[in-house]
Design a protein around this nucleic acid. Structure first.
Lengths: 164, 164
DNA sequence: TATTGTTATACTCTATAACTATA
DNA sequence: TATAGTTATAGAGTATAACAATA
């Protein structure tokens, strides 16, 4: 049962899966706690941040694509954030089937607090690593994203850096 | 990627949070798909694996501690796995308040398939990395766990090392 | 009185399917 | 007919609180 020999690649991957899931759980829990005072759930905060980070209003389908969820899930998330008065829905004049979501002034005013909450959470989880370790970790996770052909990720992480 | 403008440590941490959450989502989705044919949910598979990996029967509270969830959550998970006939509950003769959970023969027989499913998922997600990259990633995530004083993680990943 | 696990309940996140209103 | 978003519903995961049996 117990293997003491050098691990196979798949064994490495298995360990990785455990470790990464575990860290993600810590991240999610911390995030939930930090976001609660703002009256936002994790999913709602993600919507708010996406709407805020993209200049022009987004359609529901755009948000769904960036969140990698089905459009139906976005309806619930947007409902919550809209009820909090942070974003608002409007019909796209060019295609009246589409709904355009944009930030309200109140939503814009909350962004700084949201950013602080996110930083606090991230710092709680990753603050234990040295600067170069964080850089290494970021590089590896980015490589993983790229090798999965994940476009949303790169766009998400480097929104306005015209670097190559 | 040498000399871009130096990010703040907290900015690095923020990127990391995004990237890691994203990878975790992919992992969870893949796992859900791979586990479905076995009739197991993610949480149920975790319970089964913990009960299988520890020799002697576990109390509900032990499982809760290893899963890092409240005991109530374990009740639901164990209900499902027990209904599938893979584990069974019994009263601890030494403390009749406690419930001891152990694997059934049928549960034991499923372990190989479970392991294959887990490997397939892990390979899907981390297969894109080279061997040394996987090793680096594991090292960094382990460091993170240790710096959070996370005992369950080390025990989870290296079961035969320093069993307590 | 303290502890173990449960019943009861609720909330978050996400999904599928059927429907509405446009196009 | 095809598309965008919604209503309706469901299931997974986890939590708190009150309660039972046992210590």
């Amino acid at each position: 049962m117990g293997t003491t020999q050098p691990h196979q690649p798949t064994d490495d991957a298995l360990e990785l899966a455990e470790l990464l899931s575990h860290t993600a759980r810590r991240l999610r829990r911390g995030s939930t706690t930090q976001l609660a005072p703002l009256g936002l759930t994790n999913a709602q905060a993600r919507v708010l941040r996406i709407v805020a980070s993209v200049g022009p209003p987004l359609r529901m389908a755009d948000i769904a694509a960036r969140l990698e969820v089905v459009p139906r899930s976005v309806t619930t998330m947007v409902d919550g954030v809209e009820a909090a008065g942070l974003i608002e829905r409007g019909t796209d004049p060019d295609d009246r089937r589409s709904v355009l979501v944009r930030l309200t002034p109140r939503g814009h005013a909350l962004l700084a607090r949201l950013e602080r909450a996110r930083r606090a959470t991230a710092q709680d989880v990753f603050g234990g690593l040295a600067d170069d370790e964080r850089a290494d970790l970021a590089r590896l996770l980015e490589a993983l994203c790229h090798r999965h052909g994940c476009s949303s990720c790169a766009a998400d992480v480097h929104p306005q850096k015209g670097e190559s």
